[in-house]
Design a protein around this nucleic acid. Sequence first.
DNA 1: CGATCAATTGAGCCGTCTCAATTTGGGTGG
DNA 2: CCACCCAAATTGAGACGGCTCAATTGATCG
Lengths: 225, 225
Amino acid sequence: MLSELCLPLGMVRTEVSRLDELIKERIRLPKGTALFHLGDKTEAVYGIRSGSIKTQLEDSSGQVQITGFLLPGEILGMDGLLNNEHVSHAIALEDSEVCVIRLDEMDHLSLQMPALQQQFRRLMSKEINRSHQLVMALGALRSEQRLAAFLLNLSHRLAALGYSPYEFVLRMSREEIGNYLGLTLETVSRLFSRFAREGLLHIQQREVKILDMPALRALSGSDCG
Amino acid sequence: MLSELCLPLGMVRTEVSRLDELIKERIRLPKGTALFHLGDKTEAVYGIRSGSIKTQLEDSSGQVQITGFLLPGEILGMDGLLNNEHVSHAIALEDSEVCVIRLDEMDHLSLQMPALQQQFRRLMSKEINRSHQLVMALGALRSEQRLAAFLLNLSHRLAALGYSPYEFVLRMSREEIGNYLGLTLETVSRLFSRFAREGLLHIQQREVKILDMPALRALSGSDCG
DNA sequence: CGATCAATTGAGCCGTCTCAATTTGGGTGG
DNA sequence: CCACCCAAATTGAGACGGCTCAATTGATCG
């Protein structure tokens, strides 16, 4: 079982097997469907087993802001732990599968396994850092740097999953990328065209081939947040 | 003792008194000094007792992004829990005092007090939400909306501490506000002048008097993130 | 094979930045 | 206590990046 995927990192083998107790349930999410909506009660967090999921805030006026594109092995739902009510939407970008980590079960299990607490704390800290990196991108980078950093970040995470860092398929639209990066879809499209013209990458709709990784890194400010 | 300030929220009285065990140490921070720097080992998180503290990221090229202005009762240092190494700087905006919440002691104590775990989880979730709100502001709002939202947020938090929501002193410079909001200091200054000209507020250097809260709220998009 | 949605590309405008000059306020030492 | 100095804030003029609006092309899916 892939519980290492769902709650990864350094635990001894026996502990990992205990963890399987946590993950009894799976949920299949067809493309476009929601794992949870704003306002839903938070009774679990979720680890992505396959596919990809976007999370987005929505304010009272209906304005939307995408806060993340999550890949297999990553956790979502931790923003709902403040009042046990989700404050965001989680929507599958493609057919996906998640495993359910129920909070009550985790609390129960963590009494016997203190490492689980610390592990979960690390995961929440990681989410804080992820969000801070996005703040940095939105606050300090110009449009071309944002898109370059976005591509590098995706590339890096896909490589960690065993995929090629050079060729991959974007699972989100130009509009979603733009929303995430604080740009319009037109600006994103223009930047892709420009990057291709300058020989940094090849792009055919949503298929990306990175041709000059070092140049892309230089452009982004050598940071892949 | 003000441990409620340091780890606030719903615990029974006896638990609160147990919490005092956690908070043995205090640190005084003169204005301008750092509580921790990027790269420092994370052995504790900190609750602000008095004063105010900014947290800022710094990338490899020295580019800085302020991610928060923290007030009494708020917690900082949780971004360092991923690898037990701080990834940000925390610098006092004025003479401040924090209490130290050592992680090893918290882990020890939480074995006897499961509510502590959940409380801490809530605090980390709150930090995630805070950061997401900032992402929303940077990604979706225009400059005037960002500054209005910033002022409303400050006002709201100061009110929660028992201060007037209408009159307060900014503890940070125009440059720091601009950095936080993804704007230049000149833009921030111009916006303050404009808000004053339009009768929304009165501003004298760093002293703010909000004159028309509803208008400010309307401007911000009625969200105070 | 047509209908529909996503993506590209262009033209012009607006908001924010940059650069620069002043003004204001606070702190220090004579 | 006043004069000076330096940092912070204000204000203006002009440039530029990214947005808006609009037209066109290219995919995808009944």
